[in-house]
Design a protein around this nucleic acid. Structure first.
Lengths: 375, 375
DNA sequence: CTGAAAGCGCTAACAG
DNA sequence: CTGTTAGCGCTTTCAG
């Protein structure tokens, strides 16, 4: 096609080093009848290009099926942006979503990702130190790392940038992307109430994670707004683990009269609740509704599948990579960096673990001493 | 600021574009009193360098704390190696291990990774086509993709290279890394037998995955070698899903006399078995031993935690990236590529779901009332 | 065994 | 708005 001859300049003088005929920016330029620089401008969507020119270039790009060479780009562009993903909480399902989001965006933006898991906060701090020393200028931090002020301070001290993914709450001066845990828990509770439930148990998460608190508050607020009196016995402490969920569920299911629904503040605890209910020969959802939070793998692995809240972790991480990249590049250009923040929408995923309370239970609900067990 | 005609002494006259003072190969050369070329040779451990020179260079490298610039390397080195990770089976725990292994190795070897998930085999084939067109020369394929001959053929046809991670079996002409599923299932069964069990139920996996078969065979072989007669009623078909595990477990636990142990060929089904056992008020492991396979997240999330077989997925994927990179580079250099294969060691992870059969059960079991077991 | 020269593909900086 | 020029840091080629 493109008459690959020696046009003007020094094409193919000694093409020995050209391994593959992948089109370069120069090829595009020739095709589009302009200079490579203009092509570069178009690719990087800089402003100063006439529309007509831009279109020509775009057409040429499409025609040649051109795609920029990353290596060349970062070589020429000066410093390669490298950012680290740290995590302390290797819940596999979280992690894989987290990684996918980051990977995708990182490859799109041509930043290099360093993925590191660490044992605890103190080892995290050491890691941050090492990485910063190794030239890492940005850190993406999921909970619980991003809820630890020490870690945040250290990053700042090292003149690096941190973005929190799904922190308990957004500190004002901090880059962060999150969902509204409070509102999500509120919505879920409202959903359960809407089903007709009045006695709704709640299992609190790990007190060390701020999100746990916000979820509890959402639950509380929904009860309040629905004029349902809070029964202290229906709120038990958990730690986000399956085991703690079992203990919590045992307690909750022993309360008289029994709750007709249990909202566990994560999926692991909800799964445990289902198990305990089954052990007591309670059918889920007919005898008891169980809802979770997070939409981890487990939520859809067990049976019945869990109604839960999905955090768009992938999108959140992608956003985080984008934001941190912008911030680092701004910094590299000597501009002032202002921390970006974003709240992304969650989704209430309705599956098979929730239903209206059965008649028998409704009767039971108030205070009547008769158990009225249905089965 | 342009008069730089002289060759040898190019000082930092115009470091305008130099963003950071990272030492370059030229700095090392100056320090080591040789040419950049020699330094390059040392870094790439090519043969032709005198020991004395090499040592000088090494010293200089150490002194300056030099580390090569990846972008420059791949730019100059010709083709950038890009490989794709495809998967059809987004089990989160598998995925995250898979990604971690790949990421790490990819960054070490400076290859670019493209991660793609796909819906089914036919969409996978389309993806492979697109990616190959986009210059991807290597594909890393986990099951079930790597068990599909069509996909494999397509990759070959497109003149790309595929490496299978944990395929059911290694086709001779295929790059692959796997564990010995047969031997692992054999070992697990032997472990259970060693505990004193004789009536051991087995839940088969998805018949479409070759590994399912090999696991079954391992179980069978262990029984045979232990002179335990196979009871057909104790072998039920599953599909690797939680739900199918529940069904299988229900069947198994209804057999008279009841098995004292159940070996499910993956963790999801094992978890389901535990749930069913609990529903029947059977204690795990005191009333019944339950073992899984894979060591997914779920194995250690539920209670009791599962005794299972761990595939070193991370290491496997890392190996796959290494192998495929070698193969592609060989091909680029016009050498003949011979598909590499590797079998990595698995680990039997003993947790809390297995125990010796109780006395009561032993009496029930086959015919001999005496345990005769040593422990 | 070693080095000089010539780029790899792209972009920053400065002209027009 | 567009083009020119000079590299980014490294490796290939080819000549000592």
């Amino acid at each position: 096609m493109t008459q690959e001859g020696q046009t003007g300049s020094k094409r193919r003088t000694r093409g020995a080093r050209r391994h593959l005929g992948a089109p370069t920016i120069a090829d595009v330029a020739r095709e589009a009848n302009c200079s490579p620089m203009t092509v570069s401008r178009v690719i990087n969507s800089e402003g100063n290009v006439r529309d007509a020119t831009r279109n020509q270039v775009m057409a040429a790009i499409a025609k040649l099926n051109y795609s920029p060479n990353r290596a060349a780009r970062s070589l020429a562009g000066g410093e390669q942006v490298r950012i680290a993903l740290l995590f302390d909480n290797p819940s596999a399902s979280y992690l894989s979503e987290f990684l996918m989001g980051a990977l995708e965006e990182a490859s799109r933006r041509d930043v290099q990702l360093v993925v590191q898991s660490c044992e605890d906060v103190s080892s995290a701090k050491q890691l941050v130190r090492n990485l910063a020393e190794g030239g890492i200028r940005g850190f993406i931090l999921p909970p619980p790392l991003c809820d630890d002020q020490d870690v945040l301070n250290l990053v700042a001290e090292l003149d690096a940038i941190a973005v929190a993914v799904g922190p308990g709450r957004a500190a004002g001066s901090q880059g962060a992307v999150l969902i509204d845990d409070f509102q999500a828990a509120y919505d879920m509770t409202m959903h359960i109430i809407g089903l007709g439930h009045r006695r709704i148990g709640f299992i609190i998460g790990n007190p060390e994670q701020v999100a746990a608190d916000r979820r509890l508050n959402g639950y509380l607020a929904a009860l309040r707004d629905s004029k349902i009196e809070v029964d202290e016995r229906l709120i038990v402490q958990g730690r986000f683990t399956y085991r703690s969920g079992m203990d919590g569920a045992e307690k909750l299911l022993s309360v008289e009269p029994r709750p007709t629904a249990i909202f566990a503040s994560n999926d692991d605890m909800a799964a445990a609740t289902v198990a305990v209910a089954h052990r007591r020969h309670l059918d889920v959802p007919n005898d008891i509704t169980v809802c979770g939070f997070d939409d981890t793998d487990m939520a859809s692995s067990i049976w019945p599948e869990l109604t839960t809240i999905r955090q768009p972790i992938r999108e959140m991480t992608a956003w985080a990579v984008g934001a941190i990249t912008r911030m680092i590049r701004a910094k590299l250009h000597g501009e002032k960096v202002r921390p970006e923040q974003e709240t992304l929408p969650y989704v209430l995923i309705r599956r098979e673990s929730d239903a209206a309370p059965s008649l028998a239970q409704s009767r039971t609900r108030g205070q009547s001493p008769t158990r009225g067990k249905s089965n």
